[in-house]
Amino acid sequence: MPPARSWRTYPQGYMLEAARCKKCGKTFFPPRLVCNKCQGREFERFNMQRTGKVVTHTVIRTPSDEFSGEAPFAVGVIEMDDGPRLTSQIVDVSFDEVKIGMPVKLEFRRLSSEGDAGIINYGHKAVPART
């Protein structure tokens, strides 16, 4: 990912910045310009809580080159407690422990890097929520 493209997504990647429609209250991650529920165009930006649960999941064994060193790894759709859903790796857990409905927390992690000399891209990955 080129530096400029990565940089443009920092608010979402680093802070989980989402948008809440001022008219109907629907939340979006990433933020969008027009609400798909009420066509509202005014949004309030907010940073999501980093907690949610697994909606569905799978294991990637043959990834693209960018992630080849990490395979196999779990990926899931996470429904955040603030509403929006996002796709994330699920790490620090054995595959048979990952279940639908499992509570997770998003931790700050390296997502990828442009070889040994390029930039490192950071963002969030899901880990099991433990109290």
Binding site: V91, D92, R109, R110, L111, I120, K125
Partner: peptide, 9 residues
């Protein structure tokens, strides 16, 4: 540390 953990994370 895991492969995706470093001083920054």
């Amino acid at each position: 540390p895991a492969l995706d953990e470093d001083t920054i994370t």
